Computed example of a mutant assay.
Amino acid sequence: MAQRALPLPAARLGRAVGTAGAPTAVSGVVLLLPDGEPASHRRPSLLSHAFQLPLARTLARAGRTDGLAVHVVHYRCRGWNTADAQLAADAEWAADEVARRYGDVPVCLAGHGMGGRAALRAGGHAAVNSVLAMAPWLPGSTTDQPNPNPEPEPEPVKHLRGRRVLLVHGTNDARTDPELSFQLAERAKKTNRDTCRFEVHSDGHSLRQHRAEVTALATNFIRGSLLGHPYARPVADALAAPPPLGLRMPLAAGFGRSLRG
């Protein structure tokens, strides 16, 4: 007798990270989207989920007094799975769930790797006001599973109009091609001037070598986009600069030190 495939578990939002001592009123929500795989129906990776927790805790601390809620999204499975775009669909579901839980509050989608692609694809959701894509996996990137389409369709960008968009990519990323994220940012900038991209020189896919700077950049962008805080000068300059200057902005060593305190 043929075995029946088990149904996928439902996507989950879970409890907000670092809610102890936080105000009850929520004024903005960050949805962190973990990395995934091009094709897989396996359960989501616990490691990829755990990789987002340090950033989630930092964001929760930085936005606690402003009513910022931070959630790490639990996918149904770990694969994008071609036209199904399941990770993007789960990101859109999570944005709907934010509206159900918290009402009409702005949302930032922030993802890493395949989660970065999901953030970009789902960025047109009505609740989303900003998108952060870190080392985003895009069609044509190097993976352990060859892309069957030699000329993949580029990611859409027109739906990002009206959002603040930040891409961050390590120049030594061997898994997701940094040049592809530059090309996407270049296309997005033509329809959405509020697009910028930072390059993390000598860093790889995980952005571990300069994690402190990447975390500070992400925190500054999210607080500015969701909560109305001023952007750091490099972020403001990158958003205002014409291409390619604002799309190849180097992330300086020590970024964020002057913002503390």
Rank of each mutant, 00 (worst) to 15 (best):
F51A: 15
A39Q: 15
G21L: 07
A50D: 13
A16K: 03
P34R: 04
L31V: 08
R64M: 08
A22V: 01
R57F: 04
L59I: 05
V17Q: 10
P23R: 05
A16I: 01
P38F: 07
G21P: 11
F51Y: 12
S27I: 01
A62H: 04
Q52T: 08
A62G: 04
S27P: 01
A25V: 13
L46E: 14
L46D: 13
L32Y: 09
A22I: 01
A20E: 14
S45G: 00
L32C: 02
P34T: 07
A62Y: 02
L33V: 07
A20G: 13
T65Y: 04
V29M: 04
S27M: 01
A16M: 03
A60G: 06
H41A: 06
T19P: 00
P23V: 10
L46P: 11
Q52P: 11
T58W: 00
A56C: 07
P34L: 03
V26L: 07
P54N: 12
R61L: 11
D35C: 10
R57I: 04
R42A: 14
L32F: 12
G36A: 03
P44M: 00
P54H: 10
H41D: 12
L53P: 03
H49M: 12
G36V: 04
L47K: 15
T58G: 11
T24R: 15
V30F: 03
A50F: 03
T65E: 15
H41L: 09
S27G: 14
P34K: 06
P34D: 13
T65M: 07
L46R: 14
P54V: 10
P23W: 10
L33F: 07
E37I: 01
R64V: 09
P23A: 12
G36Y: 01
P44G: 03
Q52E: 15
R43M: 12
S45N: 08
L33E: 14
A62Q: 08
L47R: 15
V29D: 08
A25C: 05
E37D: 15
P44Y: 00
A56S: 05
V26Q: 11
A60K: 01
T24N: 12
S45E: 08
L31G: 00
T19S: 13
P38M: 13
G63S: 03
L46I: 01
F51N: 12
G18D: 08
L55R: 11
L33T: 09
Q52G: 06
A25E: 13
R64I: 02
F51P: 01
L53V: 14
L32R: 02
R64G: 11
L59M: 04
V26D: 13
S27N: 15
R15Q: 13
F51C: 10
D35E: 10
L53C: 05
Q52A: 13
S27V: 07
A22G: 09
R43S: 15
G36N: 04
T24H: 13
R42P: 02
A39R: 12
L47G: 09
